[in-house]
Amino acid sequence: FVTIACCCAAQLGVYPWLMFWSCVLSYFVFYCAHWQTYVSGKLKFGRLDCTEAQFSFITIHLISTISPGFWSNSIPYLQLEYRILVALLTIGSTLWSSFNNIRLVSQGGCGRNFSSVAGTSIIFPGWPIGLLIFLAVVASNYSTSSVLEEHTSLHLLCYGMVFSKITNRLIVGHMSRSPLNGWDSSCIGPLAVCINQYFNLLIDEHVLLWFFLVS
Results as ranks from 00 to 15, higher is better:
Phe211Pro: 06
Cys7Tyr: 01
Val138Glu: 10
Glu52Ser: 15
Ala192Asp: 07
His34Glu: 02
Asn168Tyr: 15
Tyr198Phe: 11
Val193Gln: 02
Ser67Ala: 14
Pro68Asn: 13
Arg47Met: 10
Leu104Ile: 14
Met161Val: 13
Leu12His: 06
Ile102Pro: 04
Phe212Gln: 05
Ser22Arg: 01
Cys110Arg: 03
Ser106Lys: 13
Glu205Pro: 03
Leu104Gln: 02
Ile123Trp: 12
Ser93Thr: 15
Gly46Pro: 09
Cys23Glu: 00
Val24Pro: 10
Val2Thr: 09
Val2His: 13
Leu88Glu: 11
Thr3Gln: 12
Cys187Val: 10
Ser40Phe: 02
Gly108Phe: 01
Val105Glu: 00
Leu48Pro: 09
Trp21Ile: 00
Asn73Ala: 15
Leu170Met: 03
Thr144His: 06
Leu95Asp: 11
Gly160Ala: 06
Val137Ala: 10
Phe70Met: 03
Trp21Leu: 00
Gln11Gly: 14
Met19Asn: 03
Ser186Ile: 09
Ile203Gly: 05
Ile195Met: 07
Val117His: 03
Gly182Ser: 07
Ser176Val: 10
Gly69Phe: 15
Phe28Glu: 02
Ser74Ala: 15
Ser145Thr: 10
Leu154Arg: 03
Leu43Thr: 04
Gln36Asp: 05
Leu157Arg: 04
Phe57Thr: 12
Gln79Asp: 15
Phe212Glu: 03
Leu156Arg: 07
Val137His: 14
Gly41Val: 08
Glu81Arg: 15
Trp183Pro: 01
Glu81Cys: 14
Ile188Trp: 09
Leu89Ala: 15
Cys194Phe: 05
Arg47Thr: 14
Pro128Glu: 01
Phe70Val: 05
Phe57Cys: 13
Thr37Met: 05
Leu157Trp: 08
Ile66Thr: 15
Glu205Phe: 00
Phe114Ala: 13
Ile123Glu: 15
Ile122Cys: 04
Leu135Phe: 11
Gly182Leu: 09
Ile58Phe: 15
Val214Asn: 00
Ser115Phe: 01
Leu180Lys: 00
Asn100Pro: 11
Ile66Cys: 09
Cys187Gln: 13
Gly13Asn: 06
Gly126Lys: 07
Phe124His: 10
Pro76Gly: 09
Ala33Cys: 11
Thr37Cys: 02
Asn200Gly: 04
Asn200His: 12
Thr120Ser: 14
Gly69Asp: 13
Ile203Leu: 12
Met19Gly: 00
Thr37His: 03
Pro16Ile: 04
Thr152Tyr: 07
Leu43Phe: 06
Val86Leu: 09
Met161Thr: 12
Glu81Ile: 08
Met161Cys: 14
Lys44Ser: 11
Ser145Cys: 05
Asn181Arg: 11
Gly69Leu: 10
Phe1Gly: 12
Thr90Tyr: 12
Gly130His: 13
Val214Ile: 09
Phe20Leu: 03
Val214Glu: 02
Ala9Tyr: 04
Ser98Glu: 10
Met161Ile: 11
Trp127Ala: 08
Val214Thr: 08
Phe30Asn: 04
Asn101Val: 07
Val29Ser: 02
Gly119Pro: 00
Leu180Cys: 07
Val162Ile: 14
Asn141His: 14
